[in-house]
């Protein structure tokens, strides 16, 4: 196909073909991905005969991307994995055995000095590293632009967003034709491993004497805060809270109405603390450790417990709200 003639520079092969179950795979992969040398690389995964569902492959992809690397292609012997990869737009390619023999890790290969030298060399050979990685992105999107059955007809709504990004978080059956896509949801809507948030089984945690209500949050006062919230700082306000800055992990925002963070939300956010179920939590990057709306509490999925969030200039604002008694997160793709 497209990559037939071109070479994947800056690539890594991770051989996981001996692993027989998914949880072990994720564990191994996450420990490998923490190695600094893997950052920014194009990962070629060798998966052997392990069967992976679409949702499982999706979380593996998300794991790799959370470490700033991306999947170049996968090599699998399982038909199911192959089908999942096709529907996610991941290239499938066989890693020829002589190639893997070449790369069999020898002690000498990993002497630090050699390691570094090699990395520097690579850079001088390819002064414009980015073009290489871009090539692969194109491959991804191209694969995706071939209409896939389930997304047919909805594509025009999402045309401006790269297909790759969509496949990252939105399984096709949950596409909503109203310009929103469900990013993640609580129990029942998405399998646990792909949900961004999981409802805590605390039940409804409204304090005694407080009842659910749906007062329009637009009628409430709004508190503007023009600073970054740090660990241990709490903002508690009866109306809406608007933060211009980040809310670091360990901070707490408690509002009677909506919470909007013009930055990365990493702490605990409790909107509608007086039982207002129409309250929403919005952020440029919604990464709260816990999301609480009225009496519903949801924790972040453990797979997203990374030490820190990489800052970029590209944010896709997200909004969390209650729908049918569940916390649902929408990714705002377009305003109209």
């Amino acid at each position: 196909m497209l990559m037939e003639k071109s070479a994947v520079e800056n690539g890594f092969i991770i051989d996981l073909s001996s692993i027989k179950n998914t949880s072990q795979l994720v564990f191994e992969l996450s420990s490998i991905m923490e190695h600094p040398d893997v950052k920014g690389k194009n990962i070629c995964l060798k998966l052997g005969s392990l069967d992976l569902k679409q949702s499982q492959l999706l979380s593996i992809k998300a794991l790799i991307e959370s470490m700033n690397a991306k999947i170049a292609f996968i090599d699998t012997k399982s038909e199911q994995t192959e089908a999942s990869a096709v529907s996610l737009g991941i290239m499938i390619k066989e890693i020829s055995s002589d190639l893997t023999a070449d790369i069999a890790p020898s002690e000498e290969d990993f002497k630090d000095s050699e390691y570094k030298e090699e990395a520097v060399e690579e850079r001088t050979e390819n002064p414009v590293q980015d073009t290489n990685s871009q090539e692969i992105v194109e491959v991804h999107t191209e694969v995706h632009n071939n209409p896939i059955e389930t997304t047919e007809g909805i594509e025009d709504i999402y045309d401006e967003v790269s297909a790759q990004e969509l496949s990252e978080v939105i399984p096709s059956e949950n596409y909503q034709p109203d310009g929103f896509g469900i990013l993640a949801a609580s129990e029942g809507l998405l399998p646990e491993e792909t949900s961004k948030y999981i409802l805590l089984d605390t039940g409804n945690v409204l304090p005694e004497g407080v009842e659910e209500n749906s007062v329009n949050t637009e009628s409430m006062q709004t508190l503007y805060i023009n600073q970054t919230l740090r660990s241990g700082q709490t903002i508690s306000y009866d109306g809406n809270v608007f933060i211009i800055g980040d809310a670091h992990p360990g901070s707490e925002i408690i509002a009677g109405g909506d919470i909007t963070v013009w930055g990365i939300l990493g702490g605990i956010a409790h909107a509608g603390c007086n039982g207002n179920i129409t309250s929403k939590v919005r952020a440029l990057k919604l990464n709260a450790i816990q999301l609480r709306i009225a009496g519903l509490y949801a924790r972040r999925n453990d797979t997203l417990n990374v030490p820190y969030v990489q800052k970029t200039n590209e944010f896709t604002p997200e909004e969390a709200l209650i729908e049918d008694g569940k916390i649902v997160i929408y990714k705002k793709l377009r305003r109209d």
């Binding site: 990559m3 070479a7 994947v8 800056n10 890594f12 092969i13 893997v38 790369i103 890790p105």
Partner: peptide, 15 residues
């Protein structure tokens, strides 16, 4: 680190 390094195979893939 030796263990992690053993788990990673590094190469330039040429197809």
């Amino acid at each position: 680190m030796a263990k992690i390094k053993n788990a990673i195979a590094k190469l330039k893939v040429k197809v």
